[in-house]
């Protein structure tokens, strides 16, 4: 079975996938607990739209997608925070942005007569990860991991009780914006491999699975990361073994893991 990793594209897929999964799983715990899960989904749609527009316009797709996703992340976060104060409907805004971005992407793809298969943008491809993509991914994901560890206590405080942290003088808006920006970067580096429409599963699944079986913060964070890594490896291996598309295979593996964790939680109660 290990022979599958003798292919360079499989090695790249393994490294990129593992690193993106781990980062997404870390960020996911906070996003899910703060009820921002839909932001990840919104970002992935924006990523698809931007990739298609970039490709149709003959530009390097990533240079369009990265800033578009980053700006959307900050905007969506702002909206969600306003929603907390009851002013606007953040989930409606996310839904509108998602479908608009998707529509623009598909229109751009059909007008531009893309050489690239739109399918591969939507659902990912192991072959889409170039060597330079892999290097960028390793750099960005390492930065995310280091930042997460350095700001571990701050992230807990803001996730647990943002008002309390703000009352003591913390600039919680800055922390949330930084988290949104880092989430956007993770989505961008992972979307070619996982597919723009499936990347948000990497954010949500490990976190909710971990919360089924862990009750402490540290336990949840460690468990989320481990389950994400396990889900990715299982998905990648089954994709290779059964000739399945990688992104969907990973999401299916994550769904199975969630089912097992839920069952374990039920039995324990």
């Amino acid at each position: 079975m290990l022979s599958m990793f003798s292919y360079p594209f499989m090695q790249r897929a393994l490294i990129v996938g593992l690193m993106v999964s781990v980062c997404a799983a870390l960020l996911g715990v906070t996003l899910v607990l703060k009820r921002f899960s839909m932001i990840g989904d919104g970002l992935s749609h924006v990523g698809f739209g931007a990739l298609s527009v970039g490709a149709a316009a003959g530009l390097a797709p990533m240079y369009i997608a990265a800033p578009a996703v980053l700006i959307s992340a900050v905007l969506l976060l702002r909206l969600s925070r306003l929603e907390e104060r009851g002013r606007v409907s953040g989930d409606a805004a996310t839904a509108v942005l998602s479908s608009t971005a998707l529509a623009i992407g598909v229109i751009a793809a059909s007008l531009g007569k893309l050489n690239v298969d739109v399918n591969s943008y939507m659902f990912g491809s192991v072959l889409a990860v170039s060597a330079s993509d892999a290097v960028i991914c390793v750099v960005i994901c390492s930065a995310v991991l280091i930042l997460y560890l350095l700001f571990y206590n701050t992230i807990f405080a803001v996730t647990f009780d943002e008002t309390f942290a703000a009352a003591g003088g913390m600039k919680t808006g800055l922390v949330s914006t930084a988290m949104a920006a880092v989430t956007a970067l993770t989505v961008v580096v992972g979307m070619r491999l996982m597919g723009t429409l499936l990347i948000s599963a990497l954010i949500v699944f490990p976190a909710i699975s971990a919360m089924k079986i862990c009750r402490s913060w540290r336990g949840t964070v460690i468990c989320s990361v481990s389950l994400a890594a396990a889900g990715f490896i299982a998905g990648l291996i089954s994709a290779f073994a059964f000739s399945l598309p990688t992104g969907p295979a990973v999401v299916a593996a994550d769904a199975v893991i969630y089912g097992v964790c839920s069952a374990a939680d039920r039995i324990r109660r």
Binding site: M170, S216, G219
Partner: peptide
């Protein structure tokens, strides 16, 4: 107040008071 199902130990919650 934080949501009731928040994954945290009592120690983690109390310690977070020192953040600022």
């Amino acid at each position: 107040a934080p949501r009731g199902d928040f994954p945290a130990t009592v120690r983690e919650a109390a310690l977070s008071g020192l953040i600022n």
